[in-house]
Design a binder for these strands. Structure first.
Lengths: 354, 354
DNA sequence: TTGTATGCGTTATCAT
DNA sequence: ATGATAACGCATACAA
């Protein structure tokens, strides 16, 4: 039953067609130096015999494997799905195979990627998300082109060591918080980057601090909420829920929340409702990402929208120009937009809070 | 720059170590017939030289590729993510590589799968979701074990042609609709399986009809809503929203909705709110799947919960017992449970609707 | 315990 | 235009 032994090889086809293997190879790969008549004959025969090329054999010889590894960490965030989808389409369109490797959020994504890429002799890699705690050295091991998607600056690593396509997380976060400040809020909490995350989470928090600082609002670290439970994905509705639950208990003076991800915001919204507060009248909240579900919760989520299609397209552009043309590393920033939903409102100046 | 030419092979290691290639091969694969001292020496050397086995070479020889293809159609449904995640973990734990192939919902998933599996000489395949319009014949082409996950009965195909792990979609749908009937509803609409879908969608609609029939409620096909726009994924919030929007305009007599997927239900909830109706007082709605976000919308979604972990585990069980022990095909049904949220309520007997 | 020779399916080189 | 042969990296049967 465990067939596959029955699969015809070019040798079999050659035998049946009464030609040499190399002729078959040429016919199947649209190479020159072969008469149209024999080509057609062979192609038809191969099709009829149910021939499939053996990638292992082919790429053992060619040592060029048209495959891209897509390393994705923290898949739970639906936003990644929204960029993964077009990414996959584009890669396939270029006749490359995309191998998606999900790594648990506590694992070392670069380590995993190196292994896969090396063993499979892949042509390149894309890191979607991820929290890079790495030193520059780990990227040295990487001997194929790679791009960081939705991740921009890496604090410990020199720009020249990698490429990236992302929104300016810090800048956009500042704008988001500025939006809350413009509405009159001054006691603004932030949810929640775990310590040690050296990536988008940290940058968005930096943006938060920046906005407060710009506005002359004193920083209060107690308002920056996160949790560091091991083996727990920080980008989940649950996490946002728990963070907000505690926040509301401990800090009834808060009137607005900046969540570094929509999933956290949506989880927080439930906690806010459970606390008997109304959104946005008693509590404003703004998210980050622009995931689809944000438009279907009540009220519709106000958030910083990252353009998934554009990110996907640019990621592929940068990657393939490195693969095909040996182009140098590049850092692309794409603009985000604030989508005004119904979760933010001007601060009501009165003492009736709580 | 495009290195990978620099990767050491066992030949290089053998040269440096002053031994034969076969000794290296044995050392690296923990084979017997090799002294511990040389093994350790070689392993250390390989590590130091940054050796990585070349899968192409290895599996060209072995013609057994420890890789599983995961074909997933209609990825937009978040429920698939919830089973994909543990699935991936289990497969990796068994030291198999999982290649996820997403196919657009209008493509032929079996065709795609056959190609990949053949070319990569994969050991097996898992179909996650999908709408199988196929005749039995297409499965004959498949010469490796495969399992349909979250899909049970295929109308046109004999049971002996495939394995499956899923809830009993028809039965559970009947229970869901029965739940609405028990609350006193009689004018119950259903959202939305496109015509031609021969899979879970159709079965859940069949379950809906069954429930009405059991209760002696006359069937009204106008209450079964779906759309057949080409190239449009039916399992989205948007789709549910549009279906409900029209339904509410055309049929103000409806008091309850059965959605064949949670995404549709959640999309519909927005349409219901926009129509000025309250959930569940003016309109009850029940979903199917048990996606996480259902617990974070307001009110919390009442739904039929499929157990993703159990489905993932059983899918792997069935697949690997076929791969390793040549076990026969098997059909596993897992029980679902109705999660009582806040979107269903007893019918209020009065004329104030609308 | 270790090494030599062979072949997996394919493509490139060099012939004819 | 076509074919014989070598080579890709690895693992196995067999010999030493």
């Amino acid at each position: 039953m465990r067939a596959s032994n029955s699969r015809p090889t070019i040798k079999d086809i050659a035998k049946v067609a009464g030609v040499g293997v190399v002729t078959v190879s040429r016919a199947l790969n649209n190479k020159p130096d072969i008469s149209d008549s024999t080509r057609e004959r062979i192609v038809a025969l191969a099709d009829q015999m149910g021939y499939r090329p053996n990638r292992h054999a082919r790429f053992l010889k060619l040592s060029h494997n048209p495959a891209i590894a897509l390393i994705i960490k923290g898949i739970d965030n639906p936003f990644f799905q929204q960029v993964l989808d077009p990414l996959e389409a584009i890669v396939r369109e270029k006749n490359y195979l995309l191998t998606v490797v999900k790594v648990p959020h506590w694992a070392d994504e670069v380590e995993e990627a190196t292994k896969i890429v090396d063993e499979e002799l892949m042509a390149g890699a894309i890191f979607l998300g991820g929290s890079f705690r790495h030193e520059a050295s780990v990227f040295k091991k990487f001997n194929v082109p790679f791009v960081l998607s939705t991740v921009s600056r890496l604090p410990k690593v020199d720009d020249s060591a990698y490429s990236s396509v992302a929104v300016d997380d810090q800048e956009e976060a500042t704008r988001a918080v500025q939006h809350l400040i413009d509405l009159g809020h001054t006691t603004i909490a932030a949810l929640g980057v775990p310590e040690g995350d050296a990536s988008v989470g940290a940058q968005r928090i930096t943006g938060y601090r920046q906005a407060l600082s710009n506005a002359g609002i004193p920083l209060d670290d107690d308002l920056i909420r996160f949790e560091t439970r091991e083996q727990m994905n920080p980008y989940t509705y649950e996490h946002g829920y728990h963070l907000a639950k505690r926040l509301l208990q401990e800090r009834p003076d808060v009137t607005a929340i900046f969540a570094i991800a929509d999933v956290l915001a949506i989880g927080a919204m439930r906690a806010i409702r459970e606390a008997g507060l109304s959104i946005p009248d008693d509590m404003s909240i703004i998210g980050f990402d622009g995931i689809t579900i944000g438009q279907f919760v009540e009220p519709e989520l106000t958030t910083v929208v990252q353009p998934p299609l554009e990110i996907a397209r640019l990621t592929c552009d940068v990657l393939f120009e490195q693969i095909n043309d040996s182009a140098p590393v590049r850092h692309v920033f794409v603009p985000a937009t604030i989508h005004a939903g119904g979760t933010t409102a001007p601060l009501v100046q009165s003492g009736e809070a709580k």
